[in-house]
Measured scan of single mutants.
Amino acid sequence: KLCLVCSDEASGCHYGVLTCGSCKVFFKRAVEGQHNYLCAGRNDCIIDKIRRKNCPACRYRKCLQAGMNLEARKTK
């Protein structure tokens, strides 16, 4: 099974979405830290295992598009 954000090996369902541990922690920190990420490109950066750290804005956008939600952990 692959992470729906970066296509690395998924470690489980986190915040409602099948993700790897790295994307799970990234999403939690992004939401709780209330980061205002900005993409230096055109908001279409490739997010994969190798390049997932290059653009936090696009990675966060991809987390949201996949359906990640901090509240999902509280309902399970």
Rank of each mutant, 00 (worst) to 15 (best):
C39E: 02
N36F: 12
A30S: 07
K24T: 06
C20H: 00
D48G: 03
T75Y: 09
Y37P: 06
C3G: 00
R61F: 06
Q34D: 09
A66V: 14
H35K: 12
C55Q: 01
F26T: 00
K62Q: 08
T75F: 15
K76N: 14
L70A: 08
C13K: 11
H14M: 05
K53T: 11
L70I: 11
K1V: 04
E32C: 10
H35T: 10
C13N: 07
K62L: 09
N54T: 12
R59V: 01
V25T: 11
Y60M: 08
G41N: 14
N43A: 10
C39A: 02
C39S: 00
E32T: 12
E32M: 09
S11W: 04
E71V: 12
K76Q: 15
C3V: 00
C63Y: 01
I50K: 13
R59S: 01
K28G: 09
N69F: 11
R42C: 08
N36E: 12
K24E: 13
Q65D: 14
V17Y: 03
Q65A: 11
G33C: 05
L38A: 13
K76T: 15
K53A: 13
R61E: 14
A30K: 05
R42F: 15
C13M: 10
D44E: 14
R52I: 07
Y15H: 07
D44R: 07
G67R: 03
R52P: 04
C39N: 02
C13F: 12
I46T: 14
C39Y: 00
A72D: 11
E71I: 11
C20Q: 00
R29K: 14
A10D: 04
K1H: 04
Y15A: 07
Y15N: 13
L70N: 11
H35Y: 07
R61D: 13
V25W: 09
G33A: 08
R42L: 13
G12F: 07
Q34Y: 05
D48E: 07
A30G: 04
V17M: 03
G12A: 06
C13R: 10
K49S: 10
A57G: 08
Y37K: 06
T75N: 13
T19N: 02
Y15Q: 07
A57E: 05
I46Q: 15
C3M: 01
K1D: 12
R29I: 13
K62D: 03
C20P: 02
G21L: 10
A40N: 10
A57R: 05
N69W: 08
C13P: 08
L70Y: 14
C58R: 00
S7W: 06
K1L: 04
Q34W: 05
A30Y: 06
D8C: 06
R73K: 13
C39V: 00
L64Y: 05
E32L: 07
N36R: 11
I47L: 05
S7C: 09
S11P: 06
K24H: 10
G41I: 06
E71M: 15
C6I: 01
E71D: 13
N36M: 13
I46M: 12
S7T: 11
C6W: 00
H35A: 13
A57W: 02
C55G: 01
N43M: 09
C3I: 02
V17G: 05
G12R: 07
